[in-house]
Design a protein around this nucleic acid. Structure first.
Length: 426
DNA sequence: TGAAATGTTGGGGCG
DNA sequence: ACGCCCCAACATTTC
């Protein structure tokens, strides 16, 4: 039996400028592309989760596009370890190629699979692909990680040399074998009514002027594409101009929080700054439910939550306002908000979601100070003064059906200040 | 990538 | 012309 190599798709769902795939095609004459719907992940999601749909659709499209070479993606649902044990039995595998995934669960899984493969004489090669600079490439002089964004960014930019997307040299080294591609139904999933929007770079050069106005809908919608790797980060960076530094900074925030999660994995469950551990959250369930449903009586908060519930997306400015409202006005632990966003966001990325929630709560590294409290009315005046965005998402606005504010701003502000001050450890 | 509270300044109304 | 008050506008401090 001829030896083959396997390229394992994970969160890099494209065939252009895909580092590990390119390496596999360069070094091996028989490359089998693989995707595993990991039961440990998907079993925790509803069968019609839009992100599962999005992954499926992209795999389907890639599978169609390599059919001209008589090639296929092997698409399986199962327990990842068991799938690999089975693959080792059915194929004579020389080498497995992957792009690195930096999340705690993925690192643990990959370490386990690598061990299994090595024990069976299979080489496991992993490559940097998802980021420009990975966890140990941007460090302080003393070799420790940065925990403040601005110096991190300065160092990031200092060592950055423009990287162009790689050109793929053809896919003829993919194994020529038609494998039936499973239907969504056969995988045990269902069609979702929510779809990922295509990304849009046409307004990228006016990002810094328009980004704070949610009614303009001028943002790029890149986030889910970066999350699932349907676009390469090198391609995005390569279209930026020197004047696009604000947009560039957002991409650097992404890598900042990735390296924070890598070096401080306890942030998943703990405050980055433990001096906030003593905050007595109220965690009122009725308040939380109203926040989730977009029924707080604060239009900007409610519009954001409804946009999230309906589309799986929320404008960034509004994310800050809704998150701040949950933590400060309602005194609900940021972990509840984080979990809700994780469930709903198409672009859900553990590192960014966690980092930004801890930012909003004031508990994170380089976070907003706790006494910086957004006034949802002032934010509305500043960023949606013509009320276009809020009317778009709250049809009953201005009628009796729209609720009164669940809490008065001034009262909530003072209560938050007192509660945070009281909870401080030093 | 905050907002409120407090302080300062200076123009204008008015006796 | 002067002193006094009011208050908008801006600046600084505080949370």
């Amino acid at each position: 039996m001829d030896k083959i190599s396997i390229f394992w798709f994970r969160r890099d769902l494209r065939i252009e400028d895909n580092t590990a795939l390119n390496e596999a095609l360069l070094r091996s004459k028989k490359v089998l592309p693989l995707f595993i719907f990991d039961e440990q992940i998907v079993n925790g999601l509803p069968p019609d989760d839009p992100r599962i749909n999005y992954i499926y659709d992209n795999l389907y499209t890639i599978n169609q596009s390599i059919k001209s070479n008589n090639s296929s993606i092997l698409c399986i649902k199962g327990n990842t370890v068991n799938v690999w044990k089975e693959l080792i039995r059915s194929y004579s595998i020389e080498c497995v190629y992957v792009n690195k995934d930096y999340e705690p669960y993925a690192r643990m899984r990959d370490a386990e699979i690598e061990k299994l493969l090595l024990a069976n004489g299979v080489e496991f090669l992993s490559f940097k692909d998802q980021v420009i600079h990975e966890e140990n490439e941007v460090l302080k002089e003393n070799g420790t990680p940065y925990t403040v964004f601005t110096p991190y960014k300065n160092k990031w930019l200092k060592i950055y040399k423009s990287i162009l997307p790689t050109v793929t040299h053809g896919y003829q080294n993919l194994i020529q074998k038609i494998i039936p591609f499973p239907s969504l139904d056969e995988l045990g999933f269902k069609k979702s009514s929510i779809n990922v929007k295509e990304y849009n770079l046409s307004q990228i050069h006016s990002y810094s002027e328009n980004r704070d106005f949610p009614d303009l809908d001028s943002t790029s919608y890149l986030s889910p594409h970066l999350r699932f790797g349907t676009v390469s980060i090198r391609m995005i960076i390569s279209v930026l101009k020197p004047s696009d530094q604000v947009f560039m900074s957002e991409l650097i925030w992404r890598e900042f929080f990735m390296q924070i999660l890598f070096h401080f994995p306890n942030v998943v469950t703990q405050n980055f700054k433990s001096k906030y551990d003593g905050i007595r959250w109220l965690n009122n369930e009725v308040d939380f439910e109203k926040w989730c449903q977009g029924k707080t009586g604060y239009p900007l908060v409610d519009a954001g939550m409804r946009q999230l519930n309906k589309t799986g997306y929320m404008h960034n400015r509004v994310r800050m306002v809704t998150a701040g409202f949950l933590c400060k006005h309602l005194l609900i632990d940021w972990r509840f908000g984080e979990a809700y966003f994780a469930k709903k966001l198409l672009d859900f990325e553990l590192s960014s979601n966690n980092g930004n929630w801890q930012w909003a709560a004031g508990t994170g590294c380089d976070a907003a100070p706790y006494f910086r409290i957004f006034n949802p009315i002032e934010q509305l005046k500043k960023f949606d003064k013509n009320e276009i965005y809020i009317k778009r998402w709250i049809p009953e606005l201005g009628t009796d059906a729209y609720p009164d504010p669940i809490i008065e701003h001034k009262y909530a502000r003072n209560r938050a200040l007192e509660t945070y001050k009281m909870g401080l450890n030093n």
